[in-house]
Design a protein around this nucleic acid. Structure first.
Lengths: 150, 150
DNA sequence: TATTGACTTGGAGTGCACTCCAAGCAAGCC
DNA sequence: GGCTTGCTTGGAGTGCACTCCAAGTCAATA
């Protein structure tokens, strides 16, 4: 805890996951602060950088990583894409396009549009399964109710 | 192709996946027919049985598997649970409960109810990501439109 | 000065869900 | 009989996404 001075208050998101708030007015976070904030392990953060999924994190004069708010923004997007099951290789490709500059806008748009279609299909599949689960659960619940009545 | 005599007509589901129709009036399918029908490989079907995710498939006198319509029903459910990311170990647990008989109804209900909650959370996460994707795509599309106007 | 603790690296290890392999058997066809 | 095709088995291999390890550096504290 070198930069983040306040106590690490935990926050519960609407989806039930626990996360740490981003300290305001700071722009240089240690790897363990970022790990606490994002829920990713320090190992994973180093690995993301090694494979090119992070846009090269700034260092102190002794070589320690100092993540910026921009890095946290990027990790937030990566986290969302990861939750939707986008393969790491595709996210690395997107990161490359971002590094290459504005002339890759249309390719980025195509990549995200294809992924959006993917996500929509996944939602439809999940909702389909939800009906099956409702049906099965109702059978078991019905059996339980008639057992309780007996 | 020993049992399924009709040509393997392909069917497109609402989610866009391609599958094979279940031949009517049959109740003994070879492993390759089941593979074609479910989209799983024959390897995976054997593996499912080995780890206890299939309720022991019937055999011919020479030891070849012959899947029943009941087996196909089971594989359909397994497929749905798999699509929702349920770990294989959990599915095996559910299969064990089914084999144990009706006294496991309440445990099965609890297992499926917990999973349903899980699926609902996943849908919410995906929809959240969808908004982020819409936002990003709109930025790229906007840039493209103003470039085209220029 | 010595120790503690957080950090660094490249490379090796882990867990999951398949996926494949080698060797062999049975049936159908020329 | 010989060939092909489809199936059988246990066990080994694969790809993904981490996850951990050993050996070392540096800054702060006892």
């Amino acid at each position: 805890m070198t930069v983040l001075e306040s106590a690490p208050v935990k926050v519960r998101t609407c989806a039930g996951r626990v996360t740490h708030p981003r300290p305001t007015g700071q722009d240089r976070y240690t790897i363990s602060e970022v790990a606490a904030h994002t829920g990713l392990s320090a190992h994973t953060l180093r690995w993301y950088e090694r494979i090119g999924l992070m846009p090269h994190v700034d260092r102190t004069h002794t070589g320690q990583r100092r993540f910026s708010n921009r890095d946290l923004d990027w990790l937030e997007l990566v986290g969302k894409l990861r939750l939707t099951g986008m393969p790491v290789a595709d996210m690395v490709r997107y990161a490359e396009l971002v590094r290459e500059g504005e002339h890759t806008f249309s390719e980025r748009e195509a990549l995200l549009t294809a992924h959006r279609e993917n996500v929509r299909e996944r939602i439809a599949e999940l909702q389909d399964t939800l009906h099956v689960l409702d049906f099965k659960i109702e059978i078991y619940a019905g059996a339980r109710r008639s057992a309780e009545r007996a």
